[in-house]
């Protein structure tokens, strides 16, 4: 059983924590030992949130190590750009093509890096950078908060595992009235992966 390390990076309020909870639970269902770490608290107020999820035969540390992440999932472009040093050579970055300005950029006192700059930075380690219009797809479904599950749908095509296992976990972990919408979001994410 090979180990798979995931790092999810986003902004407080984007739903990274729920998505990482789902991802961790899927790992457990697929028979892996699983650990997950994140910091919440102050980060909820629009700060950066990164979640570490580790699948393996026997996982010790809940924190991923530098140079060892297999999948970087960026919920926001700049947040993805903070973590190239965590990525393993030849790994995959799945990045939501979406920008949330940090305060200094809003104030006109700092520059938000371009998509090309971010891609080239990530390619220093990543074998490929896959852009997903996750927030756009989620908005089309009627709720931008679905972005996390869209990204999970996309990710599921790369990681593998029975699609039903992913859907069963989603069904169990999201509020009952949002189950159908989340399943649609998951399917839309898979479709976006082609």
């Amino acid at each position: 059983m090979t180990k798979i390390d995931f790092l999810m990076a986003g902004v407080g309020g984007q739903g990274t924590i729920l998505a990482s909870n789902i991802l961790a639970e899927v790992g457990l269902q697929l028979g892996y030992d699983v650990k997950k770490a994140e910091v919440h608290g102050m980060a909820q107020r629009g700060g950066q949130v990164d979640s570490h999820v580790r699948w393996g035969e026997h996982v010790h540390s809940p924190l991923v190590e530098e140079n060892s992440v297999d999948y970087l999932i960026g919920f926001e472009m700049l947040e993805a750009a903070r973590f190239p040093h965590f990525m393993k050579q030849g790994s995959v970055a799945v990045v939501n093509d979406y920008r949330i300005n940090p305060p200094l950029v809003n104030l006109g006192k700092a520059r938000y890096p371009s998509k090309e700059e971010i891609e080239s930075l990530l390619l220093a380690r990543a074998g490929k950078v896959l852009w997903v219009d996750g927030t756009g797809i989620a908005k089309e479904l009627g709720n931008p908060a679905m972005v996390g599950v869209v990204l999970l749908g996309f990710l599921s095509t790369l990681v593998g595992g029975d699609q039903e296992a992913w859907l069963a976990v989603i069904e169990r972990m999201v509020p009952p009235k949002f189950v159908d919408l989340n399943k649609e979001a998951f399917a839309a994410g898979r479709k976006a992966a082609g």
Binding site: V11, L78, P113
Partner: peptide, 11 residues
């Protein structure tokens, strides 16, 4: 590459 920080802010 400049990556501006994202400190927590009042909502």
């Amino acid at each position: 590459l400049e990556r501006p920080i994202r400190p927590p802010m009042l909502c």
